[in-house]
Amino acid sequence: MEEKLLNKKIELLVIGGSAGSFDVLLQVIPKIKSDINFPIIIILHRKSNTPTSIAKIFSSKTNLPVIECEEKEILQPGTIYFSPPDYHLLVENDHSVSLDSSEKVNYSRPSIDVTFKNLADLYHENLAAILLSGANSDGAKGLFYIKRNNGITIVQDPAVAEIKFMPQQAINLFEVDHIFNIEEIINYINNINTTLN
């Protein structure tokens, strides 16, 4: 079992965050190596009428392409995708993105739980997920669902999170694989699919 877990390839990394996560991403994204061989999806709660494009903000801080998802976008390795505000983000079997403007879940659209569940069903053990700071319980159940589908589950250490509620909810719910500070999160991402991980 241990052997199998060590050798599994991560095909997608998903990061969920709410209040206090933007600053974490500002620290993490510039440090991600430009040769990663998997796509990253980021589900971030934010105001729906934000005038500046989040993709623009992060594009200037990394060599990786940063995209705010449009309909039927095909996920590419080495690319960072942000969920657009006011849509749930789902991935189809052909790895294209479907957006969904249906009811809010956990008072949130995008909802982290919605995307986590969809990705767990699609990627199973080839999925890694990180849940960051937040004042909302969105994401905890979805992260547990990822764990039950043999994905890797990581939360930001509540002790260092700006708002510890969201990662703490996951820790209270089940035994997460890793509780990481920001440095450890960066190290983890940069070692995905390398011999070290």
Partner: peptide, 9 residues
């Protein structure tokens, strides 16, 4: 229809 959404609905 897009299957991911429909399956969820």
């Amino acid at each position: 229809y897009s299957m991911a959404s429909l399956k969820r609905r």
